[in-house]
Design a protein around this nucleic acid. Structure first.
Lengths: 245, 245
DNA sequence: TCATTTTTTGAATCAGGTTCAATATTTGCA
DNA sequence: TGCAAATATTGAACCTGATTCAAAAAATGA
């Protein structure tokens, strides 16, 4: 009998509904206002049932983050499958992240919170393990692009591992997601259009690595075209009218 | 009569003691375990008195962060006053941050948490304003170094403002502080010595900007010497045996 | 010295996360 | 199909810890 299997599937579906409901509530009223009882109620279950799925509120938050990260991995995957010069692929990863941030504005806000000691340590070990597992492919995709570039001669490795070479791009992207959500900080210096600046800086970093072919990111039309190229080639389904500004 | 003045000073001193005690507790038992009542008790005051200074627990956290940021500004200030080529000064900012992170390992962990929507929005507006005010000089110092470099011809501005040019360094540094505190993430890829990698990537970014004089960060002995030079020139009082590894 | 103002106190209040005994549902078997 | 055992759901009670505020203490100043 497929009863065992059906049970498992229904349980997973319910978990998914809880995650969705929680995400909605966060988008609606903010992280601050998220309440376990409300999440359960909004799915027509009692509080206790929610605790069948998540060991604690923190555990739920981490789970939401992991689910979204899954989608982010899919964005990365598109880049990985793209037949294009390695340098363009590296750049496309940054574009992918920009689009992801645009599409799921709450993700990096949540992610910043979740990777905080307070939340992370309060989630179940099992959940943490799973979350890292979900995120891992992003690193592997980057690894493979860099390794391919080194093999091609597009970039020199100077005896470093692929991730050592590319960690600057990783941290720069991460840092920008953070800065964007640090209310008031960018305003302090009247900085506009942060992700556009990020993409420029990524290109500069790639130039610093002497990653061929070099590219001049201060050439605005060329930059816009490069961005649009990635959008059209990989994310045509979601960003048509995005980078025209 | 200087009574009014004395009152004010004593109040400020007490606030400082509260902040110190809270910081100690965080270092001791972690952010998670911080309790308002314990902070008050440890300074021999009642809970209510603590609330004379801080509108909420979040407000206290933001205040700790602001106080530490003050010290970070002092690190930046040393760099600002240093008579050295602009490129070395930019690099020195990153070194300063590395040393700061080493000296106050809890700062960036706390900072990540504090700039989270949940905490930031729960602090009093007055506190937020003050915190941004405290942080502002860091941006101004960076601004001035870049402006000087542009004036010198050490770097081209391509029509960008100083902070637009240098935001990559800012985000890269911020991102690395975050990554270092994201428990398990660096391990996932067996990445060691993150701040050393950060400094390498900062140099690559500066090369990408064509910031003169160019420098090869893959030349390990030259890198070490550069780092030691900054330590000795600016932070001799705190990092003698640090970057020898 | 004492009425008034200011400050401190900590027990009471409150919010919301978490638990768990009671209840309902499902399963497996005769 | 009926029924005992196993499993799942429920939500009110519990608990922790932040926050409040009436009462008490201390400072002020005339």
């Amino acid at each position: 009998m497929g009863t065992r299997e059906r049970k498992r599937r229904e349980f997973a579906e319910r978990e998914h509904r809880f995650l969705d409901a929680a995400r909605d509530q966060i988008c609606q009223d903010g992280l601050l206002a998220l309440q376990m009882a409300k999440v359960a109620r909004s799915c027509d279950y009692a509080t206790g049932t929610l605790y069948q799925h998540f060991a604690s509120k923190e555990d739920l938050l981490v789970a939401i983050c992991a689910e979204m990260a899954q989608t982010r991995v899919e964005f990365f995957q598109r880049v990985a499958n793209w037949k294009a010069p390695t340098r363009d692929k590296m750049f496309a990863l940054a574009v992918a992240d920009m689009l992801f941030a645009h599409r799921y504005p709450e993700h990096f806000r949540l992610s910043q919170f979740v990777f905080t000691e307070v939340i992370w340590e309060a989630a179940s070990p099992e959940r943490r393990r799973n979350t890292l597992e979900v995120c891992k492919p992003m690193g592997l995709i980057v690894h493979d692009i860099v390794a391919e570039a080194v093999a091609n001669g597009d970039v020199q490795d100077h005896g470093r591992t692929p991730l050592e070479l590319s960690i600057g791009q990783w941290t720069m992207t991460l840092g920008m997601h953070n800065l964007v959500h640090a209310e008031g900080v960018l305003d302090l210096y009247e900085l506009k259009d942060p992700y556009r600046m990020m993409l420029t800086q990524i290109q500069l970093l790639l130039n610093g690595l002497q990653w061929r072919p070099l590219f001049d990111p201060f050439d605005e039309p060329a930059m816009s075209e490069k961005i649009n190229h990635v959008c059209n080639a990989l994310f045509g389904d979601m960003c048509t009218a995005k980078e025209q500004r």
